[in-house]
Design a binder for these strands. Sequence first.
DNA 1: AAAGCTAGCAACCGCGATATC
DNA 2: GGATATCGCGGTTGCTAGCTT
Length: 342
Amino acid sequence: MGRSPCCDEVGVKKGPWTPEEDKKLVDYIQENGHGSWRNLPKSAGLNRCGKSCRLRWTNYLRPDIKRGKFTEDEERLIIHLHSVLGNKWSAMAARLPGRTDNEIKNYWNTHLKKKLLLMGIDPVTHRRRTDLDILASVPGLLASASLGSWDSIGQLRLQADAAHLAKFQIFQSLLQLVSPSPQLSMDAVSLLGSSAPAANLQNYQLGDVLQMNRQLEAVLNGSLGLAQDSVAATTSTLPSLSNMELLNSFQTCSGTAAEQKGGGADQLNNLYASSHDHLATANSTPSSVSAATDQMPDRIAVDASANSSASTPFEAWEGLNPDDDDLCWKNILDQLSWTNAQ
DNA sequence: AAAGCTAGCAACCGCGATATC
DNA sequence: GGATATCGCGGTTGCTAGCTT
């Protein structure tokens, strides 16, 4: 069955609307209403299909459409509605006066999705992303953290935070993935995550999560003694692994990372790629990691291979500027690498 | 200065739901 | 009750301005 396509007429114009066409459409609808969209073009003297007219009217010409940037309240509402409704753009538009479904959909796809990813939240499930999810999103995180993605000077700080957060998440992920001791991972990760709500993060804004991120680091920076006690309880399973060196390394890195302006993005990309290669191929890969890497989507492997020309796990670090604070990440990875080989 | 790249957005396409005959 | 027409939605495409190299 099915219906015939609405725009099967030959010679019907497609593509961008001209001001003249807009005027014809607006004049006609204001005078007569749209009535049957199928018949409207002929009546209005437009060489367009009805569908195209309807779209142009509802998405652009309607007098009650609000133009301009989305406000923070609107963003918050969209995120909340998306968590409840999913991709029901029209239902969301019904709750956002003056906004069209198309506008909301575009805004979601181009802005909000990235923001949620940066926050470590899965834009589909609205839950905190798992370690592997986060690793999978690192190229996106890094791309989003690059200068060109931010449209105002005021957001440079946010961008620095994004790069910072990306590092933070990589660290968290690596701890979970590489450590042969699940307990250490759990300790470190729970330490990292202790101040974050376990469940639904849908109501948290980027600022909230970045604040949370800083708080978590404060936990790391300020509670190493406590952490040492906590971690020490589990180190019997980790022969001479210097957990505190790991934490110290991260502390050193995180202290200065926020001052960066995304310059570390490339290096992070290399780090991601090379560490993924390492994780995917190491003979000593723990079974949990093997299982986990098996679940990685193809895109990761493509990204990793595309971004890494390094033949050894952390060769990508070789070209780093010694003055760059990213260098200290090498310490972390060296230790993780060494640990993994034990 | 020019070529290449990317993000943002307007518009199109295909399909399911609903209305009408 | 089946066939057909229309509408509306969500996914996708492609154009373009701005940025980078």
